[in-house]
Amino acid sequence: MTAPAQLRALANPLRNAILELLLERAATVSELAAALGRPKSTVAHHVSALADAQLLKVVRTRRVRAIDERYYGRTARIFRVGTVSQTGEAEAPYCHNDLATAAAESAPAHQADQLSSIVRHVRIPREQAREFWTRVLELANDHAQLPRGGDVVYGFTAGLYPTDCPALPEAAAPAKDPD
């Protein structure tokens, strides 16, 4: 996404929550309002803003007592925020820090000793990092498509970032035996 209207639409936390809910399935404004605990008018305003920014669309309608009830769905499973260069190439994306969001959300789970997390540091070539991140995105999509049930919503967070962590030098080639 590069359009200013799309970026403005994503800048609101309630709109992000709506998009997150719609990863599960298409929903009506009433269903979204109930899930978010917000008034229908408020949710309808934000759904309209997301639709105007082409992040949501009506995916089906249902006739209920002479009124067409609209079900909204996302226009994409993943929205990448970035810019396009003069040559038409996508440039590095601008994103808010999802890890900071996850850290704040996971604090109660950490306090209750219910948090599962891991950090690993590996020195790898940039192309290998891109390939690995593609696999992580596939895993995140698998997580988002798990059958719904239970009474707890589980978050899944992943990050891949360069660090200043120390690394061992390349291993020296073994010395050859002089025969």
Rank of each mutant, 00 (worst) to 15 (best):
D151G: 05
C95Q: 11
A34T: 15
D68T: 06
T2I: 14
P13D: 15
V84D: 06
V153E: 09
Q128R: 11
R130V: 10
I118Q: 15
T61K: 13
S117H: 14
F132S: 10
A27R: 09
G150F: 03
D142A: 13
I118H: 15
V29E: 12
L21V: 04
L99G: 11
Y72N: 03
L50V: 10
L19F: 03
E89Q: 10
Q114T: 09
T134P: 00
R65Y: 04
A144G: 03
P166K: 14
I118T: 14
F132Q: 10
Y71R: 01
L168Q: 12
V43C: 06
A104L: 06
V58F: 07
F79N: 02
G82L: 09
N12E: 15
K176R: 14
Q86K: 12
Q114A: 08
T87S: 13
E24Y: 01
R8D: 15
A129H: 02
K57T: 10
D68W: 02
V64R: 15
P4I: 07
H143K: 15
R8Y: 11
D113W: 06
H143E: 15
H121C: 13
T163I: 05
D177Y: 12
V81D: 04
L139H: 10
S116A: 12
A144W: 01
H121K: 09
L32I: 11
A102T: 02
K176N: 07
T28H: 08
G155T: 07
T134Y: 10
E131K: 09
H121N: 13
E91A: 15
G155N: 14
